[in-house]
């Protein structure tokens, strides 16, 4: 199979765009999609300081690499969850990437160690507060990334969410009619109030397969192994269903999510934005002063419970 843009041999077929690319043209395609996302969703400019949330997986490391290659000022934060060999392995990938690719571009990595800072690993914390590991993990990561962005004086925080993530999440939210979450599913979430960092998802126009292919051809060495806690996660089922639809009718995923974004934009223009809702419903946490709807935020509640000795 030939590349559709040059005489070289193709390495990836992209059925949803009815095309195929060689490594050079694939790299160009992926970076162009990221730049389009940044510009069209008003994410940031070359003057802004960006904090990338990295996990050692394909999405976040690819995102960091692309932002640096496009000339953006992007540092990163890694949260070490203390999940056995998985955390160890992914941390090594992040450190290696930092040394080989990020440092030469003038970027820095910060590591937040949950065991040291919160006093126990994520699986142990989850046990103490009797909540599922993934929801405990989510609370801590969201909290720490937001805090690091605010305290470090970053203009915006970027995550590696891709088209498959967003389409799967949308499917889940629609299946359960979780309308309150639909509002937060946009690739750019403004810093709706003091204490909240602006959050962006520059990979939302790209599928997981396109991102993984970019990582392979650009020799980005990422953690292929998955977090052991993700086994059986609902998200994986939704992704699988969407990929089956995609095989039957290429373009299903992007049509589903992009049409939603277009409708959401119209609805917000008519009914007011997320910022209005946040400013109406949130106030500073009485313990740490990050915005919350419940007096004491869920992170502070969790840490307090973990520190209370069991009866």
């Amino acid at each position: 199979m030939k590349c559709r843009k040059c005489p070289a041999r193709a390495v990836l077929r992209l059925p949803r765009h009815n095309t195929a690319f060689c490594p050079v043209c694939l790299t160009d395609f992926v970076r162009t999609q990221v730049q389009k996302a940044i510009t069209s969703q008003h994410m940031f400019s070359t003057n802004d300081r960006i904090l990338v949330a990295v996990s050692g997986g394909k999405d976040s490391l690819t995102l960091w690499e692309i932002l640096l290659k496009l000339g953006y000022r992007a540092d990163a934060l890694y949260v070490d969850q203390g999940i056995g060999t998985y955390s160890q392995g992914s941390r090594e990938k992040v450190e290696q990437f930092t040394e080989q690719i990020a440092v030469p571009c003038g970027a820095t990595l910060t590591i937040h160690n949950v065991e040291e800072e919160e006093g126990a690993s994520i699986p142990d914390l989850a046990n103490m507060v009797r909540r599922p590991t993934c929801s405990t993990c989510g609370t801590i990561k969201r909290y720490q990334f937001n805090r690091a962005a605010i305290q470090g004086g970053y203009d915006v925080m970027a995550t590696g969410h891709n088209l498959d993530d967003e389409a799967a999440r949308l499917l889940g939210n629609v299946l359960h009619w979780q309308e309150e979450y639909l509002q937060k599913q946009s690739p750019t979430l403004p810093a709706s109030m003091d204490g909240f960092a602006k959050k962006v998802k520059p990979l939302y126009r790209l599928t997981e397969r396109e991102i993984a292919a970019y990582a392979v051809v650009n020799r980005i060495d990422y953690m292929v192994e998955e977090c052991p806690m993700s086994k059986g996660a609902k998200m994986l089922v939704y992704k699988d269903v969407l990929n089956r639809l995609e095989a039957e009718s290429p373009g299903t995923k992007h049509t589903f999510y992009w049409q939603f974004l277009a409708k959401q934009e119209k609805a917000q223009a008519a009914h007011g934005s997320m910022t209005d809702t946040d400013q109406r419903t949130l106030q500073p946490c009485t313990t740490c002063s990050q915005p919350t709807s419940t007096g004491i935020c869920s992170y502070c509640k969790m840490v307090a419970r973990a520190k209370t000795p069991a009866q």
Binding site: K141, G160, D165, A168, C227, A233, K239
Partner: peptide
């Protein structure tokens, strides 16, 4: 043959 699908229920990164 490398799988490209990832994700737990609370992907923040």
């Amino acid at each position: 043959i490398r799988p490209v699908i990832s994700g737990g229920s609370e992907r923040t990164s």
